[in-house]
Design a protein around this nucleic acid. Structure first.
Length: 411
RNA sequence: CGGGGUGUAGCAUAAUGGUAGUGUACACGGUUUGGGACCGUGUGGCCUGGGUUCGAUUCCCAGCUCCCCGACCA
């Protein structure tokens, strides 16, 4: 893409009303813009990143048998009354609206009811199970206090998968599988080294749930890490009983602040019972479906990557989620920069080409702020030296590369 | 939801009971071209409603907004 055609501009200063690093950098670099507190629009660069994270998640869900679909945002009152989650006294973060005729509707703040109700129409026999439908969706939560940029919004993008299994054993097998897929997702988006499988409260559904917590001072959670077992325990559930369950000694734990980037639950019959979601087994007997719930905050993940991987000059995107793979910067007048841009683009490389008529300093500073992993400067100086000046965003030194060397490096 | 703040140009900010200055961005002209380069010219602004006052961007009240602390957070 020609940068001169990118309508967003970078800013030297962050808006005064943003405190979090993720919002400051993403707004300065032109990835997002704030609409209202806790609500952000995604600009061209930001949407590219969001889609990359979504695609990685999609690939991992599909790899374990997930079926992507899309549940509606508008939800019917009666469905939520089945689980007693319609009342504002029970759920305090509903956004509600109504039809012209007065019928009340809610905007999804989560998906269990929608999926349970919907799957009732498709599950009738043991032959239908197990099933793993999932969706990416905008979720609405009427938070009394939005904060932390895109990490705790009133409107955000997530992935939710629900498992429908014949029994607990079948469920447990899948639960293990999806735990591994979640680890794959966090590894692939560049948070591998700092994300811990964390024991957390299972609520009313089961003894434990599992969270995936990424270490960051910007986090709102406190976890205790056992580095020998490579697991963590959420402060909320740190009791002697939990320690003995997990075979962990209190002395080996290290306290850290972290961001919850994913959460998986065994739901059991919590939803299948109120929705009368059953299947017929081989004897023709009705058996309740055993369910599980698995979420990843896609937009929160984007914020977490910025929080944890940026430096004083700007964002440092991992290659897997960067809006473009390569940033070509043309300094001064030359044909070679555009030639290189066309050649790489023709090979399917995602390139942002800074063809703007602006100073070298501005271009270089913008490149650092935007954070594309591979930077190639084409200038009189580089051409005299025999080619293109290549530098990685997260490294200090640059080298003069030929076209072939560039191809080899970025592939 | 409780408490505390905030609101001046696209953005960041200053001053002021007598209609507002700067930086940046933007437009134009010129000089520049390896870390947000320089000179000149120009466009553009006091959240909304009420009150006090001869006069309110400034003081008071209300509303709204956004931020912070706490509570909340499948």
């Amino acid at each position: 893409m020609y940068q001169s055609k990118l309508f967003t501009k970078t800013r030297k200063e962050a808006p005064a009303d943003e405190v979090s690093k993720n919002a400051q950098l993403l707004i300065r670099a032109g990835f997002i813009t704030k609409e209202i507190a806790g609500v952000y629009s995604y600009l061209p660069l930001g949407l590219r990143v969001l889609k990359k994270i979504e695609q990685i998640t999609r690939e991992e869900m599909d790899a374990i048998g997930g079926s992507e679909m899309r549940t509606s945002a508008l939800q019917e009152k009666s469905v939520w009354e089945k689980t007693n989650r319609w009342s504002d006294d029970v759920v305090d973060n509903w956004f509600k609206t109504e039809l012209k005729n007065g019928t009340q509707l809610g905007l999804s703040f989560t998906n269990e009811e929608a999926f349970s109700n919907l799957m009732k129409g498709f599950i009738s026999s043991y032959k239908d199970l197990p099933l793993y439908p999932y969706d990416f969706k905008t979720i609405f939560r009427n938070e009394t206090r939005a904060k932390s940029g895109i990490m705790r919004g009133r409107e955000f993008h997530w992935k939710a998968l629900y498992s429908f299994s014949k029994d607990e054993n079948e469920h447990n097998e899948f639960y293990k599988k999806i735990t591994d897929s979640y680890i794959n997702v966090f590894n692939r988006v560049g948070l591998g080294g700092i994300t811990y499988l964390t024991f957390a409260s299972g609520g009313t559904f089961s003894k434990y749930s599992h969270e995936f917590q990424a270490l960051s001072d910007a986090g709102e959670d406190i976890i205790y890490i056992d580095s020998t077992k490579n697991i963590a325990i959420n402060k909320e559930v740190l009791t002697d009983e939990v320690l003995s369950d997990l075979g962990v000694s209190k002395d080996s734990l290290k306290e850290e602040k972290s961001i919850e980037v994913g959460n998986i639950f065994s739901l059991g019959f919590k939803f299948s019972e109120p929705f009368d979601l059953t299947y017929k087994n081989e004897e023709g007997k009705n058996i309740p479906v055993f369910m599980g719930s698995y979420g990843i905050g896609i937009s929160r993940l984007m914020g977490t990557i910025v929080e944890t991987l940026s430096d004083e000059k700007g964002i440092v995107w991992p290659e897997s989620v960067a809006p473009f793979q390569v940033h070509i910067i043309s300094l001064g007048k030359n044909e070679e920069a555009e030639d290189l841009y066309k050649k790489l683009t023709a090979q399917g490389v995602e390139v942002l080409f800074d063809d703007r008529d602006t100073s070298a300093g501005a271009k270089l500073a913008d490149a650092d702020l935007i954070g594309i992993p591979h930077r190639i400067v084409v200038s009189a100086k580089s051409l005299e030296a025999g080619g293109y000046e290549y530098k990685k965003r997260n490294e200090q030194s640059s080298s003069i590369f030929s076209f072939e060397q560039i191809q080899r490096t970025i592939s």
